[in-house]
Computed example of a mutant assay.
Amino acid sequence: MNNPVFAPRVSIEQVEEGQELAPKFDADGLLAVVTTDAETGDVLMLGYMNADALRLTIETGEAHYWSRSRKLLWHKGASSGLIQKVVDLRIDDDQDAVWLRVEVAGSGASCHVGYRSCFYRSVPLGAPVAPGLKLTFEEDNKIFDPSEVYGDAPNPTQL
């Protein structure tokens, strides 16, 4: 799927070794995005971008994503004030995934649940996998109260 904003994908050499941005969006028109803290390297979140989100991120220097649950373009921090300023944007070798290194405005939180990172729990290794497998919280406290930041806005995720 080509997008007129980006270069067409014409060869493996062009995509993997060339200097043209020719992203490969999946069947849903999305790229996976790993977002890390520019200072610490901590993983903050995994998100997705469509062509518009990638274009806006490049043009504004602030992270934009595509919300798969809400089916809309999302400027990270627009409602919470926790804007992600992009320090570095990298694309992987076959141009189907993006890595953002960001500075987060305000408290530095990136998770809508109130934690700094969306990866605030770990899964125990070496244990049998069965219903009831207990997760371990790796972040002790929420950085903000989501109800104070978002009010009665609908939860951005769906079960």
Rank of each mutant, 00 (worst) to 15 (best):
G47P: 07
G106I: 04
V15K: 03
L54G: 02
D152T: 12
F137S: 05
A7T: 06
V123N: 03
L56N: 03
L56T: 03
N141Q: 04
V33L: 14
Y120C: 01
C118H: 13
G29T: 14
G77S: 06
V129S: 04
A32Y: 06
S147F: 15
Q95T: 08
P156N: 08
S11L: 03
S117W: 02
E62M: 08
S117R: 05
M45H: 10
T35K: 09
W66V: 01
Y120M: 01
D92T: 06
R9S: 01
G41R: 09
M45Y: 11
L44E: 12
P131C: 14
P128N: 02
V123F: 02
K24D: 02
V33Q: 11
V149M: 03
V87A: 08
T57R: 10
T36G: 07
S117K: 03
A27K: 12
T40H: 11
P4C: 10
P4K: 13
G106R: 15
M49V: 05
G132L: 15
P124D: 13
V5I: 15
E139S: 10
A78L: 08
G106M: 06
L72S: 00
S11N: 01
H112P: 05
T57V: 04
R121V: 11
S122T: 06
V129I: 02
I83E: 00
F119L: 07
P124S: 06
D52L: 14
L31F: 14
V113G: 12
D152V: 13
D140M: 08
D94C: 13
E138H: 04
A32R: 02
G108I: 02
L135G: 03
T60Q: 11
L56P: 00
D92G: 03
R9Y: 13
N50T: 04
V113D: 14
D42N: 08
N50F: 08
E20V: 07
L159I: 15
Q95H: 13
K71T: 09
R55I: 05
E39P: 08
R101D: 11
E13K: 15
G151V: 14
Q158V: 01
G18I: 13
I143H: 11
P8H: 04
M1A: 10
E62I: 10
Q84F: 14
P146I: 15
Q158E: 01
E16Q: 08
E20R: 12
V34E: 00
W99T: 10
D88E: 01
S69R: 07
K71A: 08
Q19P: 00
N141C: 04
V43R: 01
D52Q: 12
G41I: 04
D37M: 09
V102A: 07
L100Y: 12
D93N: 03
L54D: 07
Y65A: 00
L56S: 07
T57I: 05
G18F: 14
Y65E: 00
E103L: 11
A130H: 12
N2C: 09
N2Y: 09
P4V: 10
R90L: 04
P128W: 08
A53T: 08
A32E: 05
L82S: 05
N50G: 07
A109K: 09
A53P: 02
A105M: 00
T136N: 08
G29H: 10
V98R: 01
P156Y: 05
M45L: 12
R70V: 07
